[in-house]
Design a protein around this nucleic acid. Structure first.
Lengths: 338, 338
DNA sequence: TTGTATGCGTTATCAG
DNA sequence: CTGATAACGCATACAA
């Protein structure tokens, strides 16, 4: 910047003012802009950050970018931040709880303006010095949590399966140890089944337990080549996808013998069709909510749980007519905890 | 840091030395560490960056994080950078050429130690001030390019289809306007077909042209419900996946009527099975090559094109026996341009 | 409106 | 081995 000032024959402060778009005499501005172009000057973010104590950046802490749902979140959150003149700093944790806390430290070192985190870590140390927003995990009323309507989604899934003629359902999911928002998928499902008077079973696999146990569960419920269930609801699309492979190996046809609904709304290449019939999470709205909540933290009255609506969408593993418009909501759970 | 010094009753320089792990008297170190813990001190990255002129960060410029192949690259590159004590700064471009150049400017402002970019932009302005590595796009001998063996992959695909009994092949892809490394997939495919004496057709869709044209191409080659081709090779898994849906709508069975091979090696949830039979790109090796090349740029003799081996893998859309070990390489293209 | 000078938090140099 | 101090690039309060 000193070089530019010398080159333009003006003072340092004038250059700074030009760079920051503050009022500067017309001919001075011209001289400075020419000098900047001539020298190819770019301001130094570190210097500016040090001086202003603002980095215009937000930490995004997430397990990985391999899972398509996470990848989609990363994408949309980055877009939303960009819209508001901020940058996202990505940190991957692979669910490592020690690393999750380290990463928060690093974010603090980087003087980020806020943190958005997706972690189920019960021992997460949440700094009170900067705005913090979580996704899918409620910590306390002072930490806003953005999630989709998991309870409503479970409710919706059960209702849809019932509508499609299912007589006996099952819900299967991974990860019972930690209570988080996605846990409510089960509760919504159970409530609906009870209300509908539909028999059902719940199968929960502890984190880290072998997949094999799911297969055993299904085998145990297969008699004479016939599965006891005609409708399955899975905690995630990922799990649904995997178990569909297992079902096919078992000689069970999807959706003819058993209809399957997942949760998330994973699309193979972003904008394309779903991989299973599913409860779709509004990823873009979730991203928008995270960012706007984080950046308006100075305003009081931020709700501590922001719950976004989900909807059902056909994806080939149920017996709907694909072209029939599916209503956005049905059998609304009036008692949704969300 | 001044606060810590005061709290510990030592000088500023001593605190700095403790923070940086330089030799400090035992009792002094203890006093400083206690003070740091007491005050919850974290060093300020901006201050350090300003002073040292090193940010230990690397820019990663990529179209988006929705495409699973890109998402996977982002993941592995971040891991590799982490291993080497660097941070990745992610910038998404959505193929916007103006933005691609802007983003390079921003990276420069951030004083990154290097840039890794995946862009096909012919007008990309590559700064000569810092190390720059591209993925899948060769610019000049002074800019190292990391890519997989696209020519060899095309060759491999044709050979595999021939082995599996195909008599008439076709290759379909998007994006002819720009010459990049993936363009060589076609060349490898054609070479192999010619060598094998196998009839084939090539169908290229300009960027932005409607998908419809692919469907028309296929329809035009369907006579009496029967497709003229019994083997299809696609430029990417994404395209293969989409066209398989089209084929099924046309009443063509995959793989019974026509066998399909894609390119990339997209896995549904990172570690799981492929979505189509495909030529697998070694994503992790690509990430490793990008990072190590970028960070060893001071050494002379960096090759300008780093070409990593691909392999074929069964993914359900061909007639291989899934359990039969597929040799890593076959019909090696001795004239591979790579 | 423009110039000058100070300090942000850190590291490095140099004197003790 | 430790303490004091200058300098990194920038924004801003104050003086001109």
């Amino acid at each position: 910047m000193a070089d530019v000032a010398r080159e333009a024959g003006v003072a340092l402060g004038t250059v700074s003012r030009v760079v920051n778009g503050q009022p500067v005499g017309k001919e001075y501005r011209k001289k400075v802009e020419d000098a900047i172009a001539r020298l190819g000057y770019r301001y130094n973010s570190s210097g500016r950050a040090l001086r202003t104590d603002r980095t215009n950046s937000v930490a995004l802490i997430i397990p990985n970018t391999i899972n398509p749902y996470f990848a989609s979140l990363v994408h949309h959150i980055n877009i939303e931040l960009e819209k508001r003149g901020r940058r996202g700093l990505l940190w991957l944790t692979e669910y490592n709880q020690k690393r999750e806390n380290e990463v928060i430290s690093m974010a603090l070192q980087n003087r980020v303006d806020g943190i958005i985190a997706l972690t189920y870590n019960p021992d997460l140390v949440i700094p009170d010095s900067i705005p913090f927003v979580t996704i899918d995990r409620f910590f306390s009323v002072s930490v806003p949590c953005v999630a989709s309507d998991n309870f409503g989604g479970g409710w919706l899934a059960a209702n849809r399966l019932a509508e499609l003629g299912c007589k006996k359902l099952a819900f299967m999911r991974i990860g019972s140890t930690l209570t988080n928002e996605p846990s409510k998928r089960k509760e919504g499902f159970v409530s609906a089944c009870v209300k509908l008077g539909l028999p059902f079973e719940i199968m929960t696999l502890e984190d880290g337990a072998p997949m094999r146990e799911f297969e055993d569960f299904l085998s145990a419920h297969q008699h004479g080549g016939r599965l006891d269930f005609d409708g399955l609801f899975f905690g995630t699309d990922s799990l649904a996808w995997r178990m569909i492979q297992v079902l096919r190996r078992m000689g069970v046809r999807v959706p003819e013998d058993v209809q399957v609904i997942g949760f998330d709304g994973i699309r193979m290449f972003g904008d394309q069709s779903l991989i299973v019939s599913t409860i779709v999470q509004p990823v873009q709205e979730i991203a928008e909510a995270c960012v706007s909540t984080l950046l308006s933290r100075h305003l009081s009255g931020v709700p501590s749980l922001i719950c976004l609506p989900v909807h059902y969408e056909y994806g080939g593993t149920t017996l709907d007519r694909p072209d029939e418009g599916s209503p956005d909501r049905e059998g609304d759970p009036s008692d949704s905890a969300c």
